[in-house]
Design a protein around this nucleic acid. Sequence first.
DNA 1: AATCCGGGGGA
DNA 2: TCCCCAGGATT
Length: 353
Amino acid sequence: MTGPGDPGFAARLLAWFDTNGRHDLPWQHPRTPYRVWLSEIMLQQTQVTVAAPYFERFVAALPDLPALAAAPLDRVLALWSGLGYYARARHLHAAARACVARHGGELPRDFAALVALPGIGRSTAGAILAQAWGERFPILDGNVRRVLCRWHGVAGWPGLPAVEKRLWQLAEAHLPGTRLADYTQAQMDFGATLCTRHAPACLLCPVRGGCVALREGRVEELPTPKPGRTLPEREAIVLQLHDAQGRVLLQRRPPIGIWASLWSLPEAPDHGAARDWFEGHLEGDYAGGEALDPVAHAFTHYRLRILPRRWRTVAPRAAVRDNDELRWVAPDQFGTLGIPAPIRRLLLAGGER
DNA sequence: AATCCGGGGGA
DNA sequence: TCCCCAGGATT
């Protein structure tokens, strides 16, 4: 009889991991608390193949926690640029500074202290403690959720509180007594390579002998997908302004909302507001701008239609000069700033003259 | 406990 | 276009 406490589950997963797991991920060598933490944050809602090159660049630039804490936020955002979910970078930076202030410049080896840091929740704290220190804490990420929903035949969208509570209980019940770092990695490798969302490799599965979904023919329908909904749409005009030296005027976004604190193009909700802003900041004629092709960008909760408008040579009004919110930036400097991916693409595509 | 927030890439 | 990927914060 297999059940929630079945010790064979973890044992079989570990045996599979030894020969089939991923043992060469960049954050595994060396597996320091700082690198584990950084990798866990980068991997939130982000696939391994996407995060890996960002991780390598990040640790090359900021190799330890004190270096991260000492870096300006702009530098951290620049290293994050293109990875998305920029709140993660701001939280990471704030957490590093909190560790310097409260924990002697190191990541605390304590669940409550970890969860108290910005950007670290229950699952990430468990992952850090298990991977960095071998402590006995469960995780519940997308992989573990999918595996547990199938193996135990748990129906209902995992985002529902009752389902999530049940999954945490199951994750806790499966924990082995030893090898917690390997077990944590094994679950994620298993979910990412065998127990995938579509077309899982059940024939190769090390725990197929207890899987409720496999036995009942429900593998493809579990976990229950999130209920769908239609997303609202918004529009925004962005102003692509070049000066005589080929530089582009960038504006820092507000510290809250989407793309918080990143550098972007000046933006307005409609042409009236865009014209007002243009006439307040620049010499020249708003109507002289060239309308570029719209750019569609989908967020999780709404769709944004970006309407770019370009001026090849404009000059600022005498009273307007570079400041904290606004600066002229040469194309070879784009890499040093945190710029949202669709805006960066627009700048690189529209930069040729 | 319920709700909100948010980039990108693969299918 | 849809879906979801190593979730967390806010209320």
